[in-house]
């Protein structure tokens, strides 16, 4: 075989082998540590909690498959699940509304947009427990606002009241900053010309909002909204600090049972954890199913 053909063949082999092996392998190898870590922590943790809730990892006695932990607080569990869903759903809805509005203001690029962006950026890293404490100090009947307005007697039960207003307010405030920044980040990658094009095609402000800006923001809004919902549904500190003692949202109930003096309550806490995780996973799957229907996502 002539030398040039040999070189060509070798070159061809390199080319053929290259795309299938060389560029892919380093990427896979780089992802391995993260995949292993996530699998061990999330998968292992979830499996242990599920096993404990099903009586397969008792503190004392023989392992025995049982659904007793799920039925031990049947009524309270349902009420707690409904309450958690209501708090998380309402606060997420408010967060999306406020966050989307904040994103539109940020996108205007004027001084008020920069102010909103700065406030949102400051709000996001603030821990929820600090936010909850601040909300309590602001909205409680002995809080700052009640003192400023001198209405301690007639001040509504915002903190610890029957409507969980302070809890929803805190989640909506914190998560709206998150939603706002995510949506603004997405809109920033879309040219302003889309809005100008729509305007020149005859769309007024409201129609541009409905027919252009909202659809363009929808994937980001759904993703950030789902994250906000799952967080609000699964975190305990805000409801624990600003809510009523009874009924309890699921995370507060799980925390109480886990910290109970009776160690036999731990499977019940684990069962609530499993239910919380299942609902969160369901919410993520529903969001993903909706996202798949959006042409922009496809």
């Amino acid at each position: 075989m002539p030398e040039s053909e040999v070189l060509a063949t070798r070159s061809g082999q390199r080319t053929a082998a290259g795309p299938s092996l060389k560029p892919c392998m380093p990427g896979v190898l780089l992802a391995v540590p993260a995949v292993v870590l996530v699998t061990v922590v999330v998968g292992g943790g979830s499996a242990m909690v599920a096993a404990q809730s099903l009586g397969l990892m008792p503190l004392v006695g023989r392992p025995e498959l049982s659904a007793a932990a799920y039925t031990a607080h049947g009524g309270d569990l349902l009420v707690g699940a409904g309450l958690s869903l209501a708090i998380a759903g309402t606060s997420t809805l408010l967060a999306c509304l406020v966050g989307f509005t904040a994103a539109l203001i940020i996108m205007q690029g004027r001084w008020c947009g920069k102010l909103v962006a700065a406030m949102s950026t400051l709000s996001v890293p603030l821990p929820h427990i600090v936010g909850a404490a601040a909300t309590g100090l602001l909205l409680a009947d002995s809080g700052l606002l009640a003192r400023v307005f001198g209405a301690a007697e007639g001040w509504p039960a915002i903190v610890g009241g029957p409507w969980w207003v302070a809890v929803i307010f805190e989640y909506a405030w914190k998560e709206s900053a998150f939603v706002g920044l995510v949506v603004a980040g997405t809109l920033a990658t879309r040219p302003v010309d889309y809005e100008e094009t729509a305007a020149l095609l005859g769309a007024g402000r409201l129609r541009r909002l409905r027919h252009v800006l909202l659809p363009l923001s929808l994937p980001a809004l759904m993703i950030s909204g789902t994250i906000a919902f799952i967080y609000s549904f699964g975190s305990y500190e805000v409801a624990w600090l600003l809510g009523r003692p009874y009924p309890e949202p699921l995370p507060v109930m799980a925390l109480r049972l886990y910290n109970s003096v009776s160690l036999t309550s731990r499977p019940e806490a684990a069962a609530i954890g499993v239910i919380t995780a299942a609902v969160s996973l369901g919410a993520a799957l529903v969001a993903l199913a909706f996202l798949r229907k959006i042409p922009l996502w496809r």
Partner: peptide, 30 residues
């Protein structure tokens, strides 16, 4: 939006959330 003028830019700027037909139907829809 009320001038009765339409601008076509260097980039087509078709709305990515709409298919071809709905892009063209956009002015009538609104």
């Amino acid at each position: 939006e009320r001038r009765g003028m339409v601008m076509v830019f260097q980039r087509p700027l078709l709305f990515p959330h709409l298919n071809v037909r709905d892009n063209v139907a956009f002015p009538a829809t609104i």
